[in-house]
Nucleic acid binder design. Structure first.
Length: 271
DNA sequence: ACTATGTCCTGCGAGC
DNA sequence: TGCTCGCAGGACATAG
């Protein structure tokens, strides 16, 4: 479900709610798909640790863990990727257990942190120090941004979704950024001019920043860890608007499939 | 090394 | 009402 702005929103609300809390015990469900690290390793790494902080890296939620006692155990990170339908909820123990709950972290404060994911595309793992393969789209400089797409024959839409190039851009924000930059999603990445690359970088950055300010896009059922919905879906100019008039020129928005992902654009405004 | 395609899952709404 | 179909915010393995 979530792209960079949604993950940022979730990480911020988790930071507010569980930073400093102690992980007393961990329950993991029986489905193997959600676990990227061995279950024993996840349990052993989390149990007894204090949550020193929660932040976002690409589309991942990163929990910084520190030993609660000084002796033997080391710092570590708990990494949660939410896939398409994953969510992290902070709730009271008596709260009804949602279907497809795959992990429950029992906190020292008496509350629970639950990982729920119907489609099981999400992943839990533990690692010493996490890093994303791709660059952060909010920080990248123009020269580095341009370098990502050099000699790439793939459509620019697919390149934007490639997490090894940029970490965090997903299907909604790729379409929205390309519209705002006036670039067709099917254009070969390597064919973009210097000014198009500059426009695209700014469009990606601005659309992500605006979406973060609005708490992300709530389509169907997305909510943050406090159960709040985002409102950026009201600002979508092309995503999910197939056949509706372009907000700039009234031309009907087109939907095509690129790299197996539905892609929305205005045939008049995007060249 | 890069690129296109299929696959992993469940749930929802549209159309009949 | 109930069925089938297509589609969904992601990422990986695989084959060329």
């Amino acid at each position: 479900m979530p792209e960079l702005p949604e993950v940022e929103t979730i990480a911020r609300s988790l930071e507010m709610r569980v930073r400093g809390d102690l992980i007393e015990s961990v329950w993991l469900g029986s489905k193997p798909e959600p676990l990227k690290s061995p279950p024993e390793e996840i349990v052993a790494t989390l149990q007894g640790k204090r949550i020193a902080g929660v932040r976002r890296a690409g589309k991942h939620v990163v929990f910084d863990l520190q030993p609660a006692e000084e002796h033997d155990s080391r710092r570590a990170q708990w990494i949660v990727h939410l896939g398409m339908t994953g969510s992290l909820l902070v709730c009271k123990p008596e709260a009804e257990l949602a279907k497809h709950t795959h992990a429950i972290v029992h906190l020292g404060s008496g509350r629970e942190l639950r990982f729920v994911d119907p489609r099981r595309f999400g992943r839990l793992s533990v690692i010493e120090t996490f890093s994303t393969p791709g660059a952060e789209p909010l920080d990248i400089r123009l020269a580095d941004f341009a370098k990502l797409f050099r000699r790439r024959k793939t459509p620019i839409k697919s390149a934007l979704l490639n997490q090894k190039l940029l970490s965090g851009v997903g299907n909604i924000y790729a379409d929205e950024a390309l519209f705002r930059a006036g670039i067709r999603p099917r254009r070969q990445a390597a064919s973009l001019s210097g000014s198009e690359l500059a426009r695209l970088r700014l469009a990606v950055k601005r659309v992500l920043q605006q979406a973060i300010r609005l708490g992300g896009s709530s389509i169907s059922d997305y909510v943050d860890a406090d159960g709040r919905e985002g409102s950026f879906q009201l600002k979508h100019r092309v995503y999910g608007r197939e056949g509706e008039p372009c907000l700039v020129c009234k031309t009907p928005i087109k939907r095509v499939v690129i790299g197996g992902r539905s892609s929305h654009y205005c045939p008049r405004c995007q060249s």
